[in-house]
Write a protein that binds this DNA or RNA. Structure first.
Lengths: 256, 256
DNA sequence: CGGACGCTTGATGCATTTCAATCATAGTGG
DNA sequence: CCACTATGATTGAAATGCATCAAGCGTCCG
């Protein structure tokens, strides 16, 4: 259901990862990293797995037997605190890798946000492939750098003190993902619930809802349905994401 | 001045990186990844550089000519917003790498927090070394995974809604860094200013100051000087970091 | 058609931001 | 060598924005 366009692997040719270039300047878009041969070699050790919406893929602390590569769908990587609060560390999309481990255990839990199709690559097999294949390793390095930058962007977002700024930044991330490839300004689809968004941006569910409305009222966004949004004013969005503090206050100050 | 113990490279044997194991379980501590030979090979293409406290190492958007490996000292990686606000993405220590790029440009600025000694490795040279050396590449992958986990932990910290929780988490990070190696409970040294801490945890400088005092009052910390702290109650610290919301009210509740 | 779930909306309290002044510390020059 | 000034840190008081509690509404799926 998620409109991933421009990608013509009908879940066939093997694992695929994409990232923005590291040292050689590109066009600013994510580009596929693996050659046909590399994909084929990885396909030999991978299996296709499917998860339905809300399915648990693994839990924090489980033995990390495999790494996953998304073909289609959206996954959330999260941690649950003792007091039940949930923090979402990342949303993962097609051509992303997930299954980060520490000393043989997954460092966070993963759950399917939408229906998901993915390659499952057992760790021993991957390890083996990596040892011998320097080019593949280099591509993985590029992908990891990409994920590192994304994690830093997320941390950046969470550093904002105002709810509007955080959500503006969130929409920029989303827009970057769904616009990637063509520069066309299309409608965005929100694959995740308000609650997931709240857990990702570090706000309460209600604050997210209110901020959405505020952004719509200000003419920045337009909701066609609850999960279908258009960005009307990309400039204002960027301004909100940049102006951290409570800036927009100057006008409309109520009398005490 | 920063007491980095247990590390016997008198800035000699070449670059060094350390990380917690990925798939093979270790002791829970960071272990050096590079062999003598690898270090020597990297040393051949690296130069030693020194920065004094507060020196700018590079700025966001500069051409990314080199990657750095810290021998001694502390560096902050940060971004400055149009409205002058500063977000610190990471503090970097000995055996860390920094200089992350995107399309040939650094993605954030780097500044020396203390006096710093580092190896500077030009990108073309590093690139060349990596292409041929599968083992070195594997070690870099491990290190990147480590940094990725750290970035996620940072995002986690920023997800906390209470100031006390964020600072408790911050101290846990710091303790993990300075305790690494021996399990001894020693005094912590804060290499960075209150302002830097504030920019790292996403709070105002004043909130940091007040929270420090609150933690001291509660018997969790003890400040010998402004930058010398002892963790008196590791348990309470963990509890605060875990109990996200305003929970810590139950215990030690002062009379109204 | 009904129930559950996700989302919106309202009212209140509190934590943190903000503004502002004072206090330490360290670094500098007389 | 000590006073002096910048810089960093603390503390106070007021205001604001978010969390929280609580209810109402829409929608999807059984």
């Amino acid at each position: 259901m998620q409109p991933r366009s421009g990608n013509d692997h009908p879940l066939a040719r093997g694992p695929s990862i994409a990232a923005i270039g590291l040292w050689q300047g590109g066009n600013g878009a994510r580009a596929p990293l693996l050659s046909e041969a590399e994909r084929a070699r990885l396909a030999a050790v991978a299996t296709i797995v499917r998860f339905k919406k809300k399915a648990q893929i693994y839990r924090e602390g489980d033995r990390a037997d495999a790494v996953f590569n998304i073909v289609e769908g959206v996954v959330k990587a999260y941690r649950t605190l003792p007091d039940k609060a949930e923090h979402i560390g990342a949303f993962l999309f097609a051509d992303d890798l997930f299954g980060l481990a520490e000393e043989g255990r997954y460092v966070n839990s993963a759950k399917a946000v939408t229906a998901v199709t993915a390659y499952r690559i057992p760790v021993p097999a991957l390890s083996g492939r990596l040892q011998g294949d320097a080019t593949l390793e280099y591509h993985v390095i590029c992908k990891l750098c990409h994920e590192l930058r994304e994690a830093q962007r997320h941390a950046m977002l969470l550093g904002f003190r105002s709810a509007l700024a955080r959500l503006a930044a969130f929409f920029q991330l989303l827009a970057q993902h769904q616009t990637a490839g063509n520069g066309a300004v299309q409608e965005l689809y929100l694959p995740m619930s308000r609650s997931d968004i709240a857990h990702y941006v570090g706000l309460s569910l209600e604050a997210v809802s209110r901020s959405f409305r505020a952004l719509a009222r200000r003419g920045v966004l337009r909701f066609r349905q609850k999960r279908h949004v258009s960005v009307l004013d990309r400039g204002k969005l960027a301004a909100l994401a940049a102006e951290n503090g409570r800036a927009g206050k100057a006008a409309g100050r109520p009398a005490p």
